[in-house]
Design a binder for these strands. Structure first.
Lengths: 152, 152
DNA sequence: CTAGTTTAGTCAGGCAATTTGACGAAAGGA
DNA sequence: TCCTTTCGTCAAATTGCCTGACTAAACTAG
């Protein structure tokens, strides 16, 4: 009996291999966030939390860092502000701009995000072993370094 | 002078490390697809191409494989059918169902997708070296194996 | 100091990629 | 033959973006 195989099953593309763990990690992290009392934080909001500085960031900075338009970022920031995670005050140094800050609740999200991310990583370590996970991480760090925008 | 650093810059989360190469790879692959004469294929369509079988698939199968609702999958399939990449004919074995097939043009996309994915992987290999990339791939394969749905 | 240009953000509109819910028609089992 | 499940569709809504047009403030050259 010949079982029909999906073409990509033979040798999985690197994209496939990167997407699977990333998707599971995201699911764990954002699912965990809901369980910790932040059910209104969605994955798209990560674009804000990943890039906001402790000293506050401007909308345009966030948009550029996240690789999206300022309108798109404004949409996310608006939602998070309305839900009490962010607040924006006028920038004293520039009358056109506003500085967007995490509220205390927003900082709690940041902390939860970091913790959940570590927990997920530890779970991965339990699956393939800490040593292999460490090697995987090192290789990914090297790849990221070479791929980072600065290196063209 | 102390340069302000983003908190996550210190030790990047595994999610960050997985997302960066994945995003760049996707960009290369789907950008390349446009350059090869398939400008109307978007990343979301990957959900179809990743899962469709050479012998054709049913809508429900595609939806389940892609982890989305059949309505969502129907939306993607509708677009690809209208653009000439897919065709669906009634399933002779089941009067309710249709079998969705790649057209010749759709097969050309599949081939381009595989080639572009390999090219992107080779480019990554040029960045960190073939040996390291091979180790990275092996580790990702092991992780994927452990994370795969069957293993809960 | 004024004139022109760039930059920060908003407003309005739209599309893509989903979701949920309700449904009709066919299939399969008892 | 009924009952239940499955396949797919219709309709509607939501989220997450984008493009274009615009105002206001700031910067840069005369």
């Amino acid at each position: 009996m010949t079982v029909e195989r999906h073409p990509t099953e033979a040798r999985r593309s690197l994209g496939w291999l990167l997407r699977l763990p990333y998707a599971q990690l995201s699911e764990r992290v954002y699912g965990g966030l809901a369980a910790r009392g932040f059910p209104d934080i969605r994955t798209a909001h990560g674009a804000v939390f990943r890039h906001i500085l402790p000293s506050g960031s401007r909308l345009t900075e966030l948009a550029e860092a996240a690789g999206m338009t300022k309108q798109g970022m404004a949409y996310l920031v608006e939602g998070l502000t309305g839900a009490g995670y962010l607040e924006s005050r006028p920038d004293p140094a520039d009358g056109r701009a506003r500085r967007i800050h995490l509220t205390r609740r927003g900082q709690a999200v940041m902390e939860a995000l970091l913790e959940l991310s570590e927990e997920a990583e530890e779970e991965f370590g339990r699956r393939i072993g800490a040593a292999k996970l460490a090697r995987l991480r090192t290789l990914l760090e090297e790849l990221a370094e070479e791929l980072s925008p600065a290196k063209g």
